[in-house]
Amino acid sequence: MRGQQEIIGMVIIVIMISIGFLFFAKFAIDSETDKSVFVRKGLAYSTMSAILNTEVECRTKAMSMGEQILEDCLIMAGGDSNTCDSELDACELFVDKSSKMLDETVLQWGKHYELRVYKTSVGSDPELFYQIKSKDCMRSRDYDSSGMFSLNLGEGNNLLAQTMLIICD
């Protein structure tokens, strides 16, 4: 009887210590706050929107990163090999400018990014066209995306460009 009582006592102590560890693990692992999620999500959205709205100076005119450079890149698969005297085609220019912009902001603030450009036509699945990244964000535990930004690639061709920025810690 006494032996049984001691075993029961031991079991209770082990259970209590296990519960303590579970609580500790829960607080230690689940430390991400609503604030950091909000900041990442907001940052991803505003960054994607700003990149697409930015206009690149091109001799005596301006070319929008989204509606012109990205459109040229997706429709003509690069098009002019010397877009805006840059010795780069439209796709390379988009990648060059957007990666510089992301490096000087998101990356400098200690976060990583993954910018994806999809080409979609009606009735077919989106095809990943370009990917610029500082880290494989989808493998990270804490990441958020801007959501899809859609651009109509001209009339009549039923083509759509979709861009998405993923930001991770």
Binding site: L43, A50, A62, T105, V106
Partner: peptide
Amino acid sequence: TFFVITLRNNLGLNSSNQTVYGEFGYG
């Protein structure tokens, strides 16, 4: 706290008052 924004330059002039083409900048 940081937030990325677009900066609109309606005047078309840079800091040295030279003409710039492109209304929207990145900041």
